[in-house]
């Protein structure tokens, strides 16, 4: 079966079961995303992959493609919404790119460049999120968490450890470590875990190597996130 839909006016083929995002990527069209990862099922929480289908705004990572759909993605309206979502993510945490060791490798920062975000626009929350440096090999800097739950899913579904979880709701939502003490050192988390290198931002960090690769020579310094995503499949 399968079929075709129009993506920004271009015909895109799809197979049964493919989402809009998967089919568009397979046809060479980039859709911004943060919580979606090619190795994991759709999550639909960040909403950066929002597209317009038949007048409705939908998550392209979660909506199955259908024959004859007309999908709008790279338009001023949709990119404006994505930019606003990014701005809200920036003010919700403490994102200080100039001294962040993830700078140049961070998907949040790279998307902000991609979508021409030039200011935070909203008032910063400045939340108090103490770091967890208890683990000998890995630092957790919760200041930068965007609640994509990739670490939660990787630790639960791939590592089968369930080290991470989101707790509380709404404005109080935050990432926690599943241990009586709340400390990473008191879990069986290991630096070789899938969850250790899944974070799209700068929360889960290998200790002591943060600036080993010079800023300016990093993944998204060399090419835009859309280019990296489409050429390297990341």
């Amino acid at each position: 079966m399968g079929g075709k839909f129009l993506f920004d006016g271009q015909p895109v083929p799809f197979e049964d079961g493919q989402t809009i995002l998967q089919a568009a990527r397979a046809a060479g069209h980039y859709i911004p995303h943060l919580c979606w990862h090619p190795d994991f099922p759709p999550h639909g929480s960040c909403k950066l992959c929002i597209v317009k289908v038949g007048g409705r705004h939908v998550s392209s990572c979660a909506l199955p493609a259908r024959d004859g759909m007309e999908v709008e993605s790279d338009t001023p309206e949709i990119n404006g919404e994505r930019r606003a979502l990014l701005q809200m993510l920036f003010v919700e945490g403490n994102h200080f790119c100039p001294s962040c060791e993830k700078s140049g490798n961070c998907q949040l920062q790279a998307l902000a460049y991609e979508l021409d975000m030039s200011s935070a626009r909203f008032a910063h929350f400045y939340p108090d999120r103490p770091v967890d440096a208890s683990h000998p090999d890995v630092l957790l800097d919760f200041n930068r968490c965007i609640f994509c739950e990739l670490c939660v899913r990787a630790s639960r579904d791939v590592d089968h450890k369930g080290v991470f979880a989101l707790t509380d709701r709404g404005i109080r939502k935050h990432l926690v470590v599943n241990a009586e003490s709340g400390r990473l050192a008191d879990t069986d988390f290991a630096v070789g875990d899938r969850a250790a290198d899944i974070c799209p931002v700068g929360v889960i960090l290998r200790k002591r190597v943060g600036f080993a690769v010079p800023i300016g020579e990093r993944k998204y310094d060399e090419a835009s996130i859309s280019t990296v995503a489409m050429e390297k499949g990341e």
């Binding site: 100039p98 001294s99 770091v131 440096a133 630092l139 960090l205 002591r208 190597v209 943060g210 600036f211």
Partner: peptide, 14 residues
Amino acid sequence: QGRPYWEVPVMVQR
């Protein structure tokens, strides 16, 4: 205070 030591040479120059 409270930041990892490897971040300091980059942060403090600001």
